[in-house]
Structures are given as structure tokens and as C-alpha cells.
């Protein structure tokens, strides 16, 4: 029950909702990015050897660090908005303002972090 949906994979991937779609899809991309990174990281630490050394080289690259920090920070800030609004449903009225507030936090925090990581990566 409830498992049947008449939507193909290609239609599902092209879905574009009316509101908050950007945060929705970035939350998904961030979550997937973290899940893949953490799985590979745990496996390489567990297995060790040449594979581990090769994969560590990727993580230590500053461009990869900026990407994974984007995933983590956006997922964390957007997740906090979802948590607060879902646990206090009265606040759902202010959903749009909450998304603006979220960007007002994310952009400066990520901007500073990206500047610090890239200047350390390019300078050292």
C-alpha cells in the first residue's frame, strides 16, 4: 500500500516543485555527497594500504575540502531550519522568511571558510 507511484525515473529527476526547491535539491546533493564521502573514508581507513593513501590524497586537496564543506554546512543549516519548523509547526507560516534567514547565515559562513581553505591551499 502506498508503494505504487506512476512516475518514471526520468520524470522523477526532472521534478521541480513550486517553492523552496533549491534548498530541497541542495539538501539532497549535500546529503548524498556526505554519504559517499563518509562511506569511502571509513572503508579506506578500515582497509588501509595503497588504496587508503591514494584516497587520502583526494581528501587533502583543498578543492575537495571546499566541496565537502559546502555539503556539510548547507545540509546542517538547512537541516536545522527543517527541524525547528517541523518540531514547532506554528512556525511553518514563516517558511519563506526562514529560507532567507538560512541564506543570510550560509553565504557569509561559507564565504569565509572557502576563502580560508583556498588561500591556505594556494599559499602553502
Amino acid at each position: 500500500m502506498g508503494l505504487k507511484r506512476d512516475v518514471s525515473l526520468s520524470v522523477g529527476l526532472r521534478y521541480k516543485g513550486p517553492s523552496g526547491y533549491l534548498t530541497y535539491i541542495l539538501h539532497r546533493i549535500g546529503g548524498l555527497g556526505m554519504a559517499i564521502f563518509i562511506s569511502v573514508h571509513i572503508l579506506s581507513a578500515f582497509l588501509g594500504g595503497k588504496t587508503g593513501v591514494y584516497l587520502n590524497g583526494i581528501y587533502e586537496n583543498w578543492a575537495f575540502q571546499i566541496f565537502i564543506f559546502f555539503c556539510v554546512l548547507f545540509h546542517a543549516i538547512n537541516g536545522l531550519r527543517i527541524t525547528i519548523l517541523d518540531l514547532f509547526p506554528k512556525l511553518l507560516e514563516h517558511q519563506t522568511e526562514a529560507i532567507w534567514l538560512e541564506w543570510a547565515e550560509f553565504i557569509p559562513l561559507f564565504g569565509v571558510a572557502a576563502y580560508v581553505i583556498s588561500s591556505a591551499g594556494l599559499g602553502a
Binding site: 505504487k4 506512476d6 525515473l9 522523477g12 529527476l13 548524498l32 554519504a35
Partner: peptide, 16 residues
């Protein structure tokens, strides 16, 4: 995280 992956998979896998 793993439950998140299941939620994403449920959105794209149509068959039971």
C-alpha cells in the same frame, strides 16, 4: 544518513 539514502531511493524506485 542511511535512512536519508532510503528516502531518496524511495523517490526514484517505483517498484515494490
Amino acid at each position: 544518513g542511511v535512512h536519508g539514502l532510503v528516502v531518496i531511493a524511495d523517490d526514484y524506485i517505483a517498484s515494490a
